[in-house]
Design a protein around this nucleic acid. Structure first.
Length: 442
RNA sequence: GGCGGUAUCGUCUAGGGGCUAGGACGCGGCCCUCUCAAGGCCGAAACACGGGUUCGACUCCCGUUACCGCUACCA
């Protein structure tokens, strides 16, 4: 019976994709609502018919869902409220708060101070006389944005408007409408905007700006959400990784939102994603890499579930994206995916090609004597270490050739683990092949 | 132009009248170590500028500069 004290909304325009800036605004609204046990509604601002489409709407809903953000009640479509908007505009006209201007209805800005206490920026004030009278209903009777926002927020019972800072200058217009309608304005909280790495407005030039692109890149929703939350907000302590969204909800508070613009630099996002990947159980990872495997043309069923889980448990340690994992899995399960052009690997071989081949010859001989039954990490470790010792080589003198032979790169998990993962027959075959390859290489 | 807003390491940020201005990413080095990653340690790296106020400002006030937003019958 008691209505929720807090009701917010996220109001995207379905004119394209879900932009990371919009996603952050949605996230802050959502966190605020969840933190205070309020409601978070979703309103699609589809009045711009030419640029809106159901397809775009679906992309946005999917993006939000993927990020783990849900909304209360059903989605509200702004276009459905046009009759109501017109009625309100006519009322303002009748009340003398607006006037006709060449067929359009223009709102009369009062000559008075319009100020509010912004939850992020503090007190912000404007003088009504500094703002021109503006059109609320076009001559074709379609309402304009600043007017519909007020009408809809009023109808939806929105208590807190949390939106981008680009709306600060629109706020006095909207407050004036609330006053003209004899309604109490909601509480406003403006979020600093996101910019590209050159300080300019975020655009494709800066790389991916759509949530969907990060999804395709193999970024985890939790990681992106975590990263976005820290753009313009901080918990007040040194925490940065919020693996559990409940912790994020509990920590969130608008009074710790920054006033300064933030630059969307994804370097830290990649690190964060790596952190998330490394601690995620293989069973969950299997679902995460699936799209990346498909994209890379890797046949998951051919690998086998059990083996895939083993691979994931190892490969996640060195991956920052799902694509990294797919790539590594591909190399370990299909020798045709080995690319023999790794700079460090080539340099290593070039340093002493003969030593490289000699090491591989010895390795083949030694490992060939390790039977299938003994082909496990412990035995392999002992075998390789023993070989290095008997050859009078450092461990690296044996390990690196094996690593390069099997993966084509100078970097991987520990060699014994790698051998186990790739399997006996395949490992030996690769080592022999690399030996031959090195013999024919320049 | 008018109106509004913002200004701490390259980036995300903490902080606040007196601090060696803290953390994280990235970068460099060391340790660990078969490589890398992870982890640990160390390092380079910031209070935009000018005036005030004050015993004392990076912090408070004013100005300048820079940047951003609004200024549409766009949203």
């Amino acid at each position: 019976m008691t209505p929720p004290h807090i009701r917010v909304r996220f109001a995207p325009s379905p004119t394209g994709y879900l932009h990371v800036g919009g996603a952050r605004t949605a996230l802050f609204n959502w966190l605020f609502a969840r933190k205070h046990g309020g409601e978070c509604l979703l309103r699609v601002e589809d009045t711009d018919r030419e640029r809106s489409s159901d397809e775009h709407t679906q992309v946005i809903l999917d993006g939000l869902t993927w990020l783990g953000l849900d909304w209360d009640g059903s989605v509200v479509f702004q276009g459905a409220g046009v009759a109501r908007h017109q009625e309100l505009a006519d009322r303002l006209l009748a009340d003398g708060r607006a006037y006709e201007d060449e067929g359009a209805i223009r709102f009369r800005m009062p000559d008075e101070e319009i100020a509010w206490n912004d939850l992020v920026y503090g007190r912000i004030g404007f003088q009504g006389r500094d703002i021109k009278d503006w059109v609320i209903l076009r001559s074709d009777r379609r309402p304009t944005y600043n007017f519909t926002v007020v009408a809809d927020d009023l109808d939806m019972g929105i208590t807190h408007v949390i939106r981008g800072e680009d709306h600060v200058s629109n706020t006095p217009k909207q407050i004036a409408v609330y006053r003209a309608l004899a309604a109490d304005p909601p509480v406003f909280a403006h979020l600093p905007m996101l910019y590209g790495t050159d300080g300019k407005k975020l655009s494709k030039r800066h790389g991916a700006t759509a949530v969907g692109e990060y999804r395709e890149m193999g970024i985890l929703p939790g990681a992106l959400r975590n990263f976005l939350a820290l753009l313009g907000w901080n918990p007040g302590d040194e925490r940065e990784l919020f693996y559990d969204i409940q912790d994020l909800i509990e920590a969130f508070s608008l009074d710790r939102v920054q006033k300064t613009k933030a630059i969307f630099d994804t370097t830290k996002l990649e690190w964060m994603n790596g952190q998330y990947l490394s601690r995620m159980p293989p069973e969950e990872l299997a679902g995460i890499v699936e799209p990346a495997l498909v994209a890379a043309g890797i046949d998951r069923t051919a690998i086998g579930e059990q083996r895939l889980l083993e691979l994931l448990a190892v490969v996640r340690e060195r991956a920052r994206t799902a694509h990294d994992m797919a790539w590594m899995i591909g190399v370990r399960t299909d020798r045709n995916r080995i690319v023999r052009d790794d700079a460090k690997a080539k340099k290593y071989i070039a340093k002493d090609p003969q030593a490289f081949r000699d090491a591989l010859d010895a390795v083949v001989q030694r490992l060939d004597s390790v039977g299938e039954a003994d082909w496990n990490a412990d035995t392999l470790d002992a075998a390789v270490r023993g070989l290095a010792e008997s050859l009078g080589l450092g461990l690296g003198g044996v390990m690196q050739p094996i690593r390069i032979a099997i993966t084509g790169t100078a970097v991987s998990e520990p060699v014994n683990v790698l051998l186990k993962l790739v399997g006996r027959a395949e490992s030996l075959a690769r080592i022999r092949a690399a030996d031959e390859w090195a013999a024919s290489a320049p």
